[in-house]
Every structure is written in C-alpha cells, then in structure tokens.
Design a protein around this nucleic acid. Structure first.
Length: 863
RNA sequence: GCGGGUAUGGCGGAAUUGGUAGACGCGCCUGACUCAAAAUCAGGUUCCUCUGGAGUGGGGGUUCGAGUCCCUCUACCCGCACCA
C-alpha cells in the first residue's frame, strides 16, 4: 500500500530535473569533443500562439532520438527555433490591431515557456527566430548570390493568385486548385515575379532521391512524381497559313510518344500560345474563344473539370514523316502553356484525351500500335471504329519505317529520324516548374532589389544590407502595407544615385525554412549565414522529424537550397537530411450537438455510452486530426498540469507506432500515469532493499529474471534504433511486470531486483526522462542518468538453457515440449511423439514424415 | 484516371528471416481493501454449438507449416491529376 510520501510527485520532480539539466547545460553541444556527431532536428514550429498536441508528439519523438543517441555516446546537436514569418501574424494585425512583429514575438515567448515543462533535451543557446534581421539579412545576401550565379530571375508570368490571402502561391502551395492555407479557389494572374531556378536541378534532385535510403518510400515517391521526368521528343511541324503559304517559324510540340507520329490527326496549341494570339488578331471569333478559355479558367479547379473545347485556326501543320500530309492546328483549352512547348500533336488512337477531342471534332482516328499476339488488321478496325484509345505496349503498324518495332524501339527510331531530318530532337521534360518566391505581403523577408528607371533592376549593395522591414505600418486597407508606406519604398539608385523604388514584395516564407538547419550550426555568426567548417561538420541532419505535409514543399525546397548554396560557395553538400521520419497526426473523436455545431471534448460528459453536453445529447463522430474548426483539440497545457510531461510523453509513444495517426484518449493518458506510479513504487521498494552483492549461486527464478533483464536491454535498444517506440514501451512494461512479480527473498533476488529497476530507469530514460532520473537518484547514484552511457547486455544471458517448442500435427498445434537447447533431433521427435494429444491424432499409425527445426518447431505429418 | 499505402479481439496495436497469432496497453468482468467511492492490489478476457472446432478483409494457390510468399477481388486512407 502506497503511503502519501511514496506517491510520485511529478510537479516537484519534473521541474527540479529540468532546472538541474538547465543549470548544468546538459544539452549544450560539447565543443571540441572527440565523440562522433549526431544532429537531431524536428521541423521548427510556426509561433501561432500556443503549443498543440501535434507539436508535443513531434518534439517528443525527436527527444527520444536525441536522448538515446546521447546515451550511445554521440555529441548531440538538438536545437530549436521559430519559423516566424507568415500570414497569421498579419491576420492578427487586421483583427486585433496588434503589430505582426509584436504578436509574433509575444507568441514566441509564450511558446518557449510552454516548451520548458516538456523536459526536452534542447540546446536553447542556439535558438533562432527567422523574423529577426540577424537571421534574414543572410538570406538577402544569399539571394543576391543566387542572382549573380543565374539561379534567380524575374519574369512576367501567369501565377497562382490566392484571392483571400491577396498573394501569389507557388505550385507546391496549391492543393486541389485551392490555396494551401486559405482554401480559396486559386485564380490565374499575370504578374512580374521573382523565381528561383529549381528546374536547373531537376535531374540532380531526381537522382539524389536514390541516395536517400533513410527517407520514407512515400516521400521519395512523391518527390519523384512531383519532379515528373518524361523522356520524349520536340518535333517541329512547318506551318502553312490560311492562304496556303508557309509561315517562317515551325510549330514545336513536345511528345512522349514519337512512335505514334504516323497516327497524328491534329495539332493543338494553348490559348496562351503566341501563335494563337497572332492568329486572333485577324480572327475575332478566335479572340473570343481565347478570352473564354482564360475567363472560364480563372480558377484552376474549373479548368480541371472543364469540357474539352477547341477552335480550328485554319492553319495546317506539315507532317514530318509523311510527304504532303498536313493536319489542322487547333487552339484547345486543355493544352497547358507552362508544360513542354505549349503545343501538342494529337494521336487519337493512342491517347485518351486526344480520342475524346477527335470524336468531338470529327477528326480521323488511325491505329498505329497493335498489341503483340493480336491480328493487327482486326485490332485496328475495332480501335478506329470505337472511342477507346489503346495506350499500352505493342508493335507499330501503318507507320512506314517504324513498322514491326515495339514501342520503345519505335520511339528511338523515330527520334533518330527526326534528328537526321532536322525536324526534332530527343529531349527530357520535367513537370517541376521554377519556384516563384515573390509574395505581396508585409510580414516576410524583404527582397533586396531596387528598381531604377535608368539602370533597371539593381541589387541592394552588400553594405546596405539588411533591408529591414519598417515597423510603422498600417493594416487598415487591403493590400501590401509596404506598397503604401510613405517613405520606405522610395530610395535612390545605388548605381546612378537617381530616384528609384524598392521591391515591395517579400519572400515566400519557405525561403527561411530552406536553410535554417545550416544556421543552427553557427547561430550567432554575424558576417555570414553560417561557418562552412561547422556546417560541414554537423550536416547533413542525421535525423529529421516532421509531418508528411511537407513532402514536396519544405523538403524539396531545402534539397534545392542545399545544392544552390553549394554552387554559390557556402557549402559542399547535396542532401541536407540524411534520415527523415514523418510522424502521424494526433487525432481525437469529434462531437456535434443536435444543431450540428461542433462540441469540445472537455465539455462532453459520459454516462455509460451516452454522451451529453450541457444536458443535451451529442453525436459522437469519427476520430479526426485535432483542429480548431472541429473543436476536437486537447490543450497540452492541461495534460501537463494534470499528469506531467512523462505521462504525456509515454502515452504518445506507447499507443501507436510513430508513423501512424495517434488517437488521443483520456483513458490512455491515465494508463500511462498509472505506469509512472507503478515504476515509482518499484524504485521505492528497491531503494529500501538493502544493497547486496550477487551470491555465487542464484535461485533459478532469479536467473530467469536476470535473463529477462538482458533480453529487455537488447530488445529495447533495437526498437529505439528502428523507431519502434511503442514496442520499446511494451518491452519495458514486460520487464517491470516481471520485477514486480519476482521473489526478492531467494538467493540473489534482492540484488537482481535492484539491477532490474536500475535497468528499467536506463531503458525508459529517453522516453520518460524525469522519472528515470528520479529513480536513478533514489537508487543512490550521484551522477546524472542523462550523462550515463546506455546499458550493455550479456549475449550469453539472452537465451535459456532449455527451450519450449511447439509440436504440430499437420500444421496444427497439439502441444509444446520443453527440452534442453542442445537436444538432438531424435530426442525432439521422441518427446513430441510422447504427447498424448499427438498420440491421439496419430491414432496408432506411424507418422508419414516428421519435420524438425531445432529450437523452433516439430511438425508431424500424419498419414 | 494514374501512383502509393492499409486491412489482425470490443479498441490501439505485437508477431524483425514462413515456425506456439493476439505481446504490451486500453476497455470490460470477478474478487480483495473501504461505511462508500476513488486509487491500489489479485485473477479473468479472440470467437463458437467447448473432451472439440473456427480464426489475421473475401476467394484461390504454393508449402510439412502462411498474418507473413504468389494470384484475384473488396473496402478505406493518402498523394498527383487535361503534364501531351
């Protein structure tokens, strides 16, 4: 029976250890250490105001890795910072009239305080905030270096416009045709924008994926698809005008199927194609069609569902292979200007979309590929009469010099011929577009550029960096406050000294997060973003942890930045993150009142399986990601106040594998809290047990526990290495159960018990560091457990002298036998056959066959 | 449409190379302690027609033996989506 003194006081204990670790700088990087380095990083938080459960899970996972690796003898870099620029700060300014900078810095202060009681092994001396000029001045310099090296450029282009956020979005920030934060239908607008040349690295980024063997397959695949490499050809089609004369410039189309050129029945160009505009000058009907395409296509979502429409320009394109053959050129609403050359040739027989178009406009369908093993004539007749395209592999038919070749060979032959005829070239096309980084927002890093009527685009000279954000701005009107600031925008040209204006756009906030991992290597350096030697020592990040939602955003941008920084002399590295772990979301049941309004979990009361809120019944919905809109959030603060950090951490780690979604339940956290107390009682008992040395002979039951301790060390070590934290918890609980059940009064009992409790403290330390440290101290250790090496195990104690193995008859379990580990096959067979249940199954007949796998199983095959 | 993933008790999940399915926990049940409750402790808990049988989403296959390998179907989840 636990007396009040013995009850575990997490409030006092957890804060005491947090203070001790802080006072001793336990988690600072060890300068000049000869230990191997290990860089653990979790995706840094946006200072939204308060920590949420997703943060707690993310940082707990990272902390387990950091503490485990520290015990394993590594010199750990485990820093924390703030991804502090972003739109919510401006929204707060609009709604509450508070300056974005003030709001952000207040949030940082609140959240930093919320971090402390979690007991994370962070090196706070390296804290950074991206909204401070000490940080962003370096990225302004970096941008200018990118510009010098041809990695940044400005151009007018059609961009994704978010009408709610009043800013441009990158392609990666448009999800299902909607803004990734606002959810608004994204519109198309033509604007002058700064771009970073991520496409220059398309091939390298693609190939680099192969080296990321400690990344989840899912993320690698998503990046692979996002880059979207396709091999094909650019084909030039001479154009014949409406009057029958040839135009000077040919039409260039991109295709991945040059093998189907003989099946071409039309060409189609984008409504934004220059040729379309030229023809429209003399054709009002076409001009109207083009307008319709762009009007109907203001939202990306609308484009995707729109019916395929075309307009015959009256121009014709001359086929590269077939003399005298020409095809009509259409303007089509489904051809994208941004991909390939903004023009295609249509082969309806072997492309679904072209088939749809051809049937609509009564264009010919010609079969030029037939599947192997089918009669080509019959197949072609069926295909040409139907409306389903054949897109699989096959053999070229009706295709002149390509006839008889399979698709791959035909592609190569077609490209070779195009090249000899000077009618086209083999090429590689990527889906990846350059990264538009201009944002029409205030709360971001100013783009260090000046526009001068005389000198054009002029970079801000180094000595004038940083270009800092003005503090005196107003948010009383829509649009970018920098644009209407009375003085900030107006400046003099650094080149000619004349009147000039500043760029008022700021960088996409993904700019800051694309290099922060390097800044942590020398966070206080003032003259450069980071020290190259330090960065090369710590990078790549050994273990990066965060949500999968950044698979093609932050994670791709960072890989690009690392390459770009290397090409500009900042680094010599390609991949920033050697290991990546993407954690699941934290979910909770949802509740709705009769009127459909969401109800918070805290206001729901249960009576049996009936849930009510304010006396009215509520409908229990499915478990979903915690979100403010569905009100199914649980405030980490309340959990920490009620159960402490260790219980919260333990529950988060034990209930689900870390890559899967976690269902938050009050019962679960209570279970974790019970375990903490159970462990504490064990420790109190162990501390009361007089320390004794191990006697020469141990009671067999004690030997069994001793084996279990060593097995637990081996299993938990392996589990922690492989992110199987839920299994690690199970193994530790098993050992705890065994220790609680053991007889301490027999020979060696007391000593092994004590050793066992000590081992539990060590094993549980990365997961629940406060109680672990407290147990360690209670057992009489003067040194910190946090500074104690990871326990080793005795391999000879992992296995028992005797093993229990299963006995099957025809694959069905009929009994078990416990035999010496060294028992030979004959002994195993004899023991197995002696089992009554086995005898019964055999029914007096001799077995047909006996399969014996020593140490594992005996399977008797009955006649 | 294309690509990927997942499916195991009432629930979360375990079973690392094919070898005793359901570890560990939650919930539930019984008992002890208590005036009572909570907490704690002890025991039980896959299902069924229970000396046996069935069982890892459905169906089929390989094997002495399949949650695990192969084929096929279904459901759900995620990513991309007129990319030529």
């Amino acid at each position: 029976m636990a007396s009040p003194e013995e009850r575990y006081n997490f409030r006092e204990t957890e804060s005491r250890w947090q203070e001790t670790w802080a006072a001793k700088n336990t988690f600072r990087v060890e300068e000049g250490s000869s230990k191997p380095k290990y860089y653990v990083l979790e995706m840094f938080p946006y200072p939204s105001g308060r920590l949420h459960m997703g943060h707690v899970r993310n940082y707990t996972l990272g902390d387990v890795v950091a503490r485990y690796k520290k015990a394993r003898g590594f010199n750990i870099l485990h820093p924390m910072g703030w991804d502090a620029f972003g739109l919510p700060a401006e929204n707060a300014a609009l709604e509450r009239g508070v300056h974005p900078g003030k709001w952000t810095r207040q949030n940082i202060a609140v959240m930093r305080d919320q971090f402390r009681p979690l007991g994370l092994s962070l090196d706070w001396s390296r804290e950074i905030a991206t909204c401070e000029p000490e940080y962003y001045k370096h990225e302004q310099k970096m941008f200018l270096d990118f510009l010098k090296n041809g990695l940044a450029y400005r151009k007018e282009s059609i961009v994704n416009w978010d009408p709610i956020e009043n800013t441009v979005l990158a392609n990666e920030q448009v999800i299902d045709g909607k803004g990734w934060r606002s959810g608004a239908d994204v519109e198309q607008r033509k604007l002058n924008q700064w771009f970073l040349k991520i496409t220059q690295y398309a091939e390298d980024l693609l190939q680099g994926i192969e080296t990321l063997d400690r990344w989840p397959e899912k993320v690698r695949l998503m990046q692979h698809n996002w880059i979207g490499r396709s091999e094909g050809a650019r084909v030039r089609w001479p154009i014949i005008g409406r009057d029958g004369t040839a135009l000077p410039e040919p039409l260039e189309v991109f295709t991945t199927r040059p093998d189907t050129l003989f099946g071409a029945s039309f060409c189609a160009i984008s409504a934004q194609h220059p040729l379309a505009a030229r023809v429209a000058e003399a054709d009002p009907e076409l001009a109207a069609f083009i307008l319709e395409c762009s009007r109907g296509g203001t939202s990306t979502a609308a484009i995707e569902t729109a019916e395929k429409k075309g307009y015959d320009t009256g121009l014709r394109a001359r086929h590269p292979f077939i003399t005298d053959k020409t095809v009509p050129i259409y303007v089509a609403n489904f051809v994208l200007m941004e991909y390939g050359s903004g023009a295609i040739f249509g082969c309806p027989g072997h492309d679904e979309r072209d088939m749809e178009f051809a049937r609509k406009y009564a264009l010919p369908v010609r079969c030029v590929v037939a599947p192997v093993g089918e009669d080509p004539q019959a197949f072609a007749a069926k295909l040409e009469a139907g409306d389903v395209a054949y897109t699989d592999d096959g053999i070229a038919i009706n295709s002149g010099f390509l006839n008889g070749l399979k698709v791959d060979a035909a592609k190569r032959a077609a490209i070779a011929k195009l090249e000899t005829q000077n009618a086209g070239t083999g090429t590689v096309q990527y889906r990846l577009r350059d990264w538009g980084v201009s944002r029409q927002r205030y709360w971001g890093c100013p783009i260090p550029i000046i526009y001068c009527d005389a000198c054009g685009t002029v970079p801000v000279p180094d000595e004038n960096l940083p270009v800092t954000l003005p503090e005196d701005v107003t948010f009383d009107k829509p649009g970018n406050p920098l644009e209407r600031h009375p003085t900030w925008k107006h400046t003099t040209c650094p080149a000619c000294g004349g009147k000039a204006t500043r760029e008022t756009d700021t960088f996409d906030t993904f700019f800051e997060s694309s290099w922060y991992f390097a800044r942590f290597c020398s966070p206080k350096l003032t003259d450069r973003p980071f020290n190259q030697v330090e960065a090369m020592k710590w990078l790549p990040v050994d273990q990066y942890i965060g949500g999968v939602e950044h698979a093609v955003l932050h994670l791709l941008y960072s890989r690009f930045f690392t390459r770009a920084m290397s090409d500009c002399g900042y680094l010599n590295l390609k991949e920033p993150f050697a290991g990546l772990f993407t954690q699941g979301m934290v979910c909770h049941e949802t509740y709705r009142a009769a009127d459909g309004a969401w109800v918070e979990p805290d206001s729901v009361t249960w009576e049996g399986d009936k849930a009510t809120a304010d006396g009215k019944p509520v409908v229990v919905g499915r478990s979903e990601k915690m979100s403010k809109s569905k009100k199914n959030t649980v405030d980490p603060q309340r959990i920490l106040d009620t159960y402490g950090a260790d219980a919260a951490r333990l529950f988060m780690l034990s209930d689900s594998p870390p890559e899967r979604d976690l269902e938050w339940t009050e019962a679960g956290i209570e279970g974790a809290w019970r375990y903490i107390n159970r462990l504490w009682r064990l420790a109190v008992t162990a501390a009361e047990t007089p320390a004794s040395t191990l006697p020469p002979t141990l009671d067999p039951s004690v030997v069994a526990v001793q084996r279990q301790i060593h097995r637990a060390i081996a299993a938990v070590s392996d589990d922690l290495e492989k992110f199987r934290f839920n299994s690690a918890v199970a193994r530790i609980r098993e050992l705890t159960n065994a220790l609680a059940d053991m007889d301490r009064s027999v020979a060696g009992g007391a000593a092994v018990y004590r050793f066992g409790v000590e081992t539990v403290a060590q094993l549980v330390n990365p997961l629940t560091p406060h109680i672990a440290e407290e147990v360690w101290r209670t057992l009489g250790h003067a040194t910190l457990l946090t500074e104690t090496p990871w326990p080793g195990y005795d391999a000879s104690l992992l296995e028992d002298d005797s093993v229990t193995i299963a006995v099957q008859v025809n694959g069905k379990l009929r009994g078990t036998i416990t035999v010496p580990k060294v028992a030979d096959k004959a002994a195993l067979e004899a023991a197995a056959l002696a089992i009554p249940a086995v005898q019964k199954q055999l029914d007096g007949k001799p077995p047909k066959k006996v399969i014996i796998v020593p140490g594992k199983i005996v399977n008797i095959v009955a006649a």
